[in-house]
Design a protein around this nucleic acid. Structure first.
Lengths: 219, 219
DNA sequence: TAGATTGTTAATCGATTAACAATC
DNA sequence: TAGATTGTTAATCGATTAACAATC
């Protein structure tokens, strides 16, 4: 119970977490421009927010700055990388190899984040056996569980077959990156597994909404 | 000034807007299951939120329900579709035809939302001229502005060349769906143009963060 | 030492939840 | 009419912003 409470206290709000990647990108740009130090005011301008928020956010992970000086860009960048777990290596498999799946396999987004693709799965016979990436041949979906168990797989990238998610409960995986466009049944998924949704269709709908609003404002 | 104020008052918060696509998906599922009516309580359960939030959200667009009865699924679905502008037709072009661009072109996400792809652009000579979709051949990026002006293009899907965004200011486009992984320079982009970002890398970073947190909690 | 800028505490603002009168 | 459930107002909660003492 005391540990529970400890965790609760240390827990960082979802709002802050959602801003971390933006901090990371922004600091990376500063670093690439050989900037050595940055104040919360400067960071705020670059990120289109307030200096207060920057300091509040960063202090929730401990103080990375120095009064009168600001933040050392390199140090802050390194710290945020560690917080995000970006320097670690992850092994991954892809489920669904049509279109989106095939492309994600080739995407640099994986290698940039230390994610190594180990295998790809599909249940359509016309896809099975295809080489979607050097030395990565599409396997039958029915092999998925055994594969994850025998190899050590951290991340499952789902681009199809959302109903397969719960089969991953006892395969030792740590996270699901969900592109299926369907809400996974979280109540059937092991609590140890983190789920990150990407609803592409939702973002297109929101764009349509914004476009429509602007039209209406005018009239 | 009175109109300005009117708009301000009618403005729906970003939090509500971000939930609209979820309402839409949820109601579509109910509709597919031939459900005729739904209460805020039921909807809340399906959407993993509170009945209060459902009623609060929906009332910000006007009352779609009926005391003692709830909401008619079909009516609510139609209303949300109209709010999202989902039944309208949009014409679009894609910038960048490597990997992600090529796949998005083929994705059903477009046709599902009434988005018709008119053209694709790239500046790499090896890509130009390729047929990435039936009758859609990759054009030279330099033709982009003239093309958008002459045809009536609503949406530009950017998968590359983020620096090109500001060139779209006077082409009459209404929205940019940004997959470039770079923050577009909003101060250089016409206010009439809505921008919807999709930072895939950010979502992967957030997944890594969650995975790491769970590991730390255990130890 | 003086100026700058942090980390943190307090104030404000907005979003979510609860309560309930209105009414189908 | 009685029961159900909305739309809306009020209460609570959390996140953002402002202020400032601490200190490099």
């Amino acid at each position: 119970m005391s540990i529970q409470r400890e965790n609760k206290r240390d827990e960082v709000s979802a709002a802050v977490v959602s801003r971390l990647p933006k901090y990371y990108r922004c600091l990376r740009d500063f670093l690439n421009n050989d900037k050595l130090r940055v104040s919360s005011k400067e960071l705020a301008e670059a990120m289109n927010t307030t200096a207060s928020q920057i300091r509040q956010d960063l202090s929730s992970f401990g103080g990375f700055g120095q009064q009168g000086y600001g933040y050392n860009v390199k140090t802050l960048y390194t710290n945020i990388s560690v917080i995000l777990g970006i320097n670690d290596t992850y092994s991954a498999v892809i489920i669904g190899t049509d279109r989106l799946g095939a492309v994600l396999a080739k995407e640099s987004v994986f290698s940039k984040r230390g994610v190594i693709l180990r295998a790809a799965f599909d249940s359509r016979s016309e896809n099975i056996g295809k080489e979607i990436l050097t030395d990565i041949y599409v396997r039958d979906l029915s092999e998925l569980e055994n594969f994850c168990k025998s190899c050590v797989i951290d991340i499952v990238v789902m681009t199809d077959y959302p109903e397969y998610a719960e089969r991953l409960n006892n395969c030792g995986i740590k996270g699901i990156w969900n592109f299926t466009g369907a809400q996974l049944e979280l109540k059937n998924i092991n609590e140890d597994i983190s789920v990150q949704d990407v609803f592409l269709g939702d973002t297109l709908m929101m764009l349509c909404y914004k476009i429509n609003m602007k039209q209406k404002e005018k009239s």
